[in-house]
Amino acid sequence: MSATVFTDAYVVAKRNIIKIKRVPDLLVFTTLSPIMFVLLFAYVFGGAINVPGGADPDAYREFLMAGIFAQTVIFGATITGAGLADDVKKGIIDRFRSLPMAPSAVLTGRTLSDVVNNVIVLVVMALTGLLVGWGIHSSPAEAALGFLLLLVFAYAISWVMAWLGMLVPSVEVFNNATFIVIFPLTFVANTFVPLETLPAPLQTFAEWNPVSAVTQASRELFGNIPAGVPTPDAWPLQHAEVYTLIWTGVFLLIFVPLANMQYRRSTSR
């Protein structure tokens, strides 16, 4: 039984990956917008933002990249939701549900193809980062762990999005809803500015925001925090990796069953 889950998920993932290939615009735009963000922040805001460890723009670029990575993989995780919203609407989910395939395969295949998409996007962004003066100052193993943590965290978000995508009536609603939630979540964090610059209530929120933790963790793993800069006192940031994994686990534990339940219930509208 479990063997069919994997082959079925593979068949579904293949479908979504063909789509990445057929609609290169999708990949181009999901990659272009983070590149634009890198350039905007590095050259427009960068000069005005002081980060611990130096006031020069180079220090900001070192600081910036992990934040942009985090924001981008989270947006990458919305592809699942938008795709499912579209599939429900077009009756493709009806077709899948009428087939003798493993019921969880559609969602597993979908979320796995987000990972593929995120890997491609991360590669493009890392290259852009290197061009604007970012660098990895840790061991290859640590760096790999940094990227892995970003991907794992985004994978958990994919399941939240899968659930949401089947709940909303259309792709447009889904995109607007996620935009409204993801933008503040990824900005009220240590992604683009140091936490110390935020007003107190927002700072507390940002400290406990899992996006801050995943950013902090990958920043540390890429060796982008200059020697002597202290880690903020908040527990989540002191234990950024653990805290990230806790959220990842919580998201998966709640939303994998919820999304599967919603899938079994959803029919085209």
């Binding site: 009756g91 087939l99 003798p100």
Partner: peptide
């Protein structure tokens, strides 16, 4: 077991337009 015995074609053409 029923799904192994049936074929469904719905009101909308449920084909993936990118494939």
């Amino acid at each position: 077991a029923v799904r192994r015995k049936i074929g469904l074609s719905g009101q909308y053409a449920a084909v993936d337009e990118y494939l």
